[in-house]
Design a protein around this nucleic acid. Structure first.
Length: 262
DNA sequence: TGTGCCCTGGTA
DNA sequence: TACCAGGGCACA
């Protein structure tokens, strides 16, 4: 599942290949994409130049030369792939943007959960998002304020993009392990010391996260580096206790019952 | 605040 | 062949 570092890397690759080029053809290959990007929107994209690619949380915003925006969210399995226009499209190519440079940008998305929308000039309204975790705006004070009223388990609260933008299920589990906090700890009861540890842990795991697709072969090493995520019954790398799994808000949480305390 | 839904490839 | 994975949203 692409998390913040993967989305940033994908946006970077898109910047390198798409900025300054014009979309000469739009092809939607999956009905789930067409639902939010109907024929009219596809027509409106055609002939537009891509001026800028911005990332906010896990949202990518393609700024077009008429002031309109193409909003892309990869959700679970989305990613960009680039091919020559004449080449065979990659597997699971759901949306194709053929560029004037001869490159076709493919939104590949195995589970077809990605969301793509066009917004007319000035029409895009950002969803409420907390600070970017790798910026100075993500202070302990801001974090504490966001959690002050939250009675839910910290793991579920971390996934709320209003608290901190861009933390997903994997890195929430990893950060809680690093900070030695139990995923079921009640968010608003965490001490400033534990919040500081958690804030630092979120930064640490995001900074060391792989930047490619998590399921790519070359990421196998990175996957192996996850310390608790998807490691049920494996020994905790810190204390060798068996990692447990619990379900919170229909999401798996992995934790060490010995060194992560409520 | 919690639950179900969208989707489909991969796994048991 | 059935079921699981899960980000973000709608809804209760």
């Amino acid at each position: 599942m692409p998390e913040l570092p993967e989305v940033e890397a994908a946006a970077g690759r898109l910047r390198g290949l798409a900025i300054g080029h014009t979309i000469v053809r739009v092809q939607v290959v999956h009905p789930a994409i067409r639902k939010r990007l109907p024929a009219g929107a596809q027509r409106a994209l055609t002939g537009r130049q891509i001026d800028r690619v911005e990332r906010r949380a896990k949202i990518q915003l393609l700024h077009l030369d008429d002031g309109s925006l193409l909003e892309v969210h990869f959700r679970m399995t989305g990613d960009w792939e680039f091919t020559p226009a004449s080449a065979q499209p990659p597997a699971h190519s759901r949306l194709r943007l053929e560029l004037s440079s001869g490159v076709t940008v493919h939104l590949v998305d195995g589970r077809a959960l990605a969301v793509v929308r066009r917004h007319a000039p000035g029409a895009w309204v950002s969803p409420p998002l907390g600070p970017e975790p790798l910026t100075e705006a993500f202070t302990v004070e801001a974090f504490a304020a966001a959690l002050a009223t939250r009675r839910g388990p910290i793991k579920a609260v971390l996934l709320d993009q209003r608290v901190v933008a861009g933390v997903g299920n994997i890195y929430a589990a990893e950060a809680l392990w690093v900070a030695r906090i139990h995923p079921a700890a009640v968010a608003r009861t965490l001490s400033v010391a534990r919040l500081t540890r958690l804030r630092d842990a979120i930064r640490e795991v995001l900074e060391h996260a792989p930047s490619g697709r998590y399921y790519a072969r070359e990421e196998a090493e990175a996957v192996a580096a996850w310390r608790v995520y998807d490691a049920e019954d494996a020994p905790c790398p810190r204390c060798q206790t068996r990692i447990r799994r619990l379900v919170q808000g229909a999401r798996s949480s992995y934790y060490c019952p010995r060194c992560q305390r409520r």
